[in-house]
Computed example of a mutant assay.
Amino acid sequence: MGAENIFTPQHALLYLAPVGTAAPEGPTVTMPAAWKSVGMFTPDSLNWSGDPEFQETEAHQSAYPVKVWQTKDAANLEVELLEWSGDNFKAVYGGGTIEAITPAGGGAVYYKYTPPSIGSRTEVAACLELGDGTRRMRRIIPRCMQREGVQHELGRDASATLPMNLSVLGSDVGSAFYDFFSAEFASFAPPTP
């Protein structure tokens, strides 16, 4: 036990990729090109939450449950993106399309974003990278989806953000998420037999 086990995520990056994209194998290997960074986000908005659900059996003879079992699990990754880009709009709204439009009579090209219709939201894979000095951690989420509504605060006294709240999705194969820790996290080393 000691201060060497305290982790302060001074460095944070979030990458997204299509579901099924090969994830980086380890905490420090170069990020594969298919993974795209969402860019900058607000320093206080990065949050991870888990929300397991349980059932319990009560007995007249005890003031406490006599049996508890987990029935569901849920987890979310949320962040407020600062960079307004086509990829980030699609990530925040769960998909959609972007098209370049050239005015018929000439003039500057402009862009049209159309959000996804009901039933056509896109799942993504996510990789959260955190660092504290030389220590590195990566959380890999093979499948997740933006399931929250989008609320923009568009005041003139602050930069407008894109709120993203990714819900972790499971499957019948593999973990819903997993973490890699660099060798500097010595406390993670399994005990030797």
Rank of each mutant, 00 (worst) to 15 (best):
I101L: 07
A176I: 09
N47Q: 15
L82H: 11
H152F: 08
V92T: 13
P52T: 06
S45I: 07
A34W: 01
Q151G: 12
S117A: 12
Q61W: 15
T42R: 04
G106S: 06
M164E: 08
E78R: 15
H152Q: 02
M164N: 10
P103M: 09
A186D: 12
W84C: 09
G50Q: 14
Y113C: 02
G2S: 05
E25V: 15
W48N: 10
M137G: 11
T57Q: 06
Q151E: 11
P193N: 03
I118T: 14
Y15M: 00
A91H: 11
T97H: 02
A63M: 14
Y111E: 09
F7P: 04
G174W: 13
E58M: 11
G133M: 05
P43K: 08
S159M: 15
G2I: 05
T122D: 03
F180Y: 15
A3K: 08
E78T: 14
P43F: 07
T134R: 11
V68G: 03
L130P: 01
G133F: 10
V109H: 04
V109N: 03
P116E: 09
P163T: 08
G170E: 06
A100M: 01
W69G: 07
P27D: 13
T21K: 05
P163M: 11
P18W: 04
L166P: 04
L46I: 15
G155S: 08
N5Y: 03
T57V: 06
K72S: 14
G107P: 02
A34F: 10
E99Q: 11
Y110R: 07
M1T: 12
L166N: 08
I141D: 01
A63C: 13
T134M: 06
K72M: 15
D172R: 13
F7W: 02
A22S: 07
W84Q: 08
R156H: 13
V109D: 07
A17G: 00
F188E: 08
G39Y: 00
